[in-house]
Simulated assay, not measured.
Amino acid sequence: MAKGVILLNLGSPDSTDPKDVRTYLDEFLSDPRVLDINPIVRTIILKLFILPTRPKQSAEAYSKVWTGEGSPLIVTSYQQQELVKEKVDLPIYLAMRYGNPSTASIVSEMKKDGIDDLLIIPLYPHYAMSSYESAVVELMEQLDKHGMAKIKTTLVQPFYKDDDYIEALWESIRPHYEGTGAHLMMSYHGIPERQVKKSDPSHAHCLTTNKCCDTPHPAHATCYRHQCFATSYALMAKAGIHHDDVTISFQSRLLKDPWLKPYTDFEIERLAKEGVKKLRVICPAFITDCLETLEEIAMEGKEEFLEHGGEDFELIPCLNTHPAWINWLAKRIETWQNA
């Protein structure tokens, strides 16, 4: 059998031109797993309220983080792909859920290469219908459309508390945090509360009590909130960081529905007002630095912290191309390859 590996990530506009940003946002927000509301209402909101104004605003934000080579997320993802290729003797493909390289184009490439045994690695540590699930569903639909529905597939499950992943995460954080005396914020990408409830197969556990994430339940296999907390607790245990020295929060809200709390921007302001002078922020939901980390946290978050009395703020980079992360990917692939 012809084995191959595909890495799946979110995606980015092709450029900072508002037209390209509009195309990207249209595809992204048309996804029923992202804006999971009545399709007619979704279309009205998207076409009449979001797309007429948001692309220009987002284009300005993207322009602040854009590199000479292009989107930070895309550039770094390609670097990850090349570094993994150096360690394993297999075809390594990279596809984005939205934008380019599109999942459809990469599936077409795999078909030409004769791949019939595929390892799927969504680059999301945590399960969420708007990220992990959406990327996997899109891949499966494209495999079907390209006549590859019957190939053998192996899917890497969310690795939010995998020991080697936690070790890699700590190794990437340690040089920026250890010995600084700073408070540590773990800011995860937010999702609407309704999506947490939808992902609960029992429809009777998630968000029903304040302690739902700490009470063992089958729903945790698909509960984004539980998995974020599990990553935080595992990392604190690994690094020997006391809970009082950590704040866990959620960023990036859209529309007016309730999202997971506490909100990162509110917490940054609160910490500064309460006298925290040094703050280090990590974003464990992201494997690769992107708009949400480089602009929303490193720029806007820093400005907010300093404005309210903080003095020393730093965004700790995502795993990106850290050797420990590349080794994690290579080890997963080699284990599958040799099974």
Score class of each variant (00 low, 15 high):
Met1Glu: 06
Gly4Ala: 13
Ile6Pro: 02
Leu7Val: 12
Leu8Arg: 06
Pro13Glu: 01
Pro13Lys: 02
Asp14Ser: 15
Asp17Ile: 03
Asp17Lys: 11
Val21Lys: 00
Val21Pro: 00
Arg22Gly: 00
Arg22Glu: 10
Thr23Val: 08
Tyr24Ile: 03
Asp26Pro: 01
Glu27Arg: 07
Ser30Tyr: 00
Asp31Trp: 01
Asp31Asn: 06
Leu35Thr: 09
Leu35Tyr: 02
Ile37Ala: 08
Asn38Met: 08
Ile45Met: 12
Ile45Trp: 06
Ile50Glu: 06
Gln57Val: 15
Ser58Glu: 07
Ser58Lys: 07
Ala61Thr: 05
Ala61Gln: 10
Tyr62Met: 04
Val65Gln: 01
Trp66His: 08
Trp66Ala: 05
Gly68Phe: 01
Val75Ala: 10
Gln80Ala: 04
Gln80Ser: 09
Gln81Pro: 13
Lys85Gly: 14
Asp89Glu: 13
Pro91Thr: 08
Ala95Asn: 11
Met96Thr: 10
Tyr98His: 15
Ala104His: 08
Val107Asn: 00
Val107Ile: 12
Ser108Gln: 13
Asp113Pro: 01
Asp113Tyr: 03
Asp113His: 12
Gly114Gln: 03
Ile115Gly: 00
Ile115Asn: 00
Leu123Met: 15
Pro125Glu: 13
Pro125Tyr: 12
Ser130Phe: 06
Ser131Met: 07
Val137Thr: 13
Glu138Leu: 10
Glu138Cys: 10
Glu138Tyr: 07
Asp144Pro: 02
Asp144Gly: 02
Lys145Ile: 09
Lys145Trp: 05
Lys145Arg: 15
His146Ile: 07
Gly147Lys: 07
Met148Ile: 07
Lys150Ala: 05
Lys150Tyr: 02
Thr153Val: 11
Thr154Tyr: 07
Thr154Pro: 05
Gln157Glu: 15
Gln157Cys: 06
Leu169Lys: 05
Glu171His: 11
Arg174Asn: 12
Pro175Asn: 10
His176Val: 05
Gly179Pro: 05
Gly179Arg: 03
Gly181Leu: 04
His183Gly: 07
Met186Leu: 14
Ser187Ala: 15
Ser187Gly: 10
Ser187Ile: 05
Ser199Ala: 14
Asp200Phe: 00
Ala204Glu: 13
Thr208Leu: 08
Thr209Ala: 05
Thr215Trp: 03
Pro216Met: 09
Cys223Glu: 03
Cys223Leu: 08
Gln227Asp: 10
Phe229Lys: 11
Thr231Phe: 04
Ala234Tyr: 06
Ala234Cys: 13
Met236Cys: 13
Met236Leu: 13
His242Tyr: 09
Asp244Glu: 15
Asp245Thr: 08
Thr247Gln: 04
Thr247Phe: 01
Ile248Tyr: 00
Arg253Asp: 03
Lys256Tyr: 01
Asp257Glu: 09
Trp259Ala: 04
Leu260Phe: 05
Pro262Ala: 13
Tyr263Val: 11
Asp265Lys: 09
Asp265Ser: 08
Phe266Ser: 14
Glu267Trp: 01
Glu267Lys: 11
Glu269Ile: 12
Glu274Arg: 13
Gly275Val: 11
Gly275Asn: 12
Lys277Leu: 09
Val281Phe: 06
Ala285Ser: 15
Phe286Glu: 05
Phe286Ile: 11
Thr288Val: 14
Thr293Val: 08
Glu300Lys: 14
Gly301Tyr: 01
Lys302Trp: 03
Glu303Asp: 15
Phe305Tyr: 02
Phe305Ile: 03
Asp312Thr: 04
Asp312Ser: 10
Glu314Asn: 14
Cys318Ser: 15
Asn320Gly: 10
His322Asp: 14
Trp325Pro: 06
Asn327Ile: 06
Asn327Cys: 06
Asn327Lys: 11
Leu329Trp: 04
Lys331Glu: 15
Trp336Ile: 11
Asn338Glu: 12
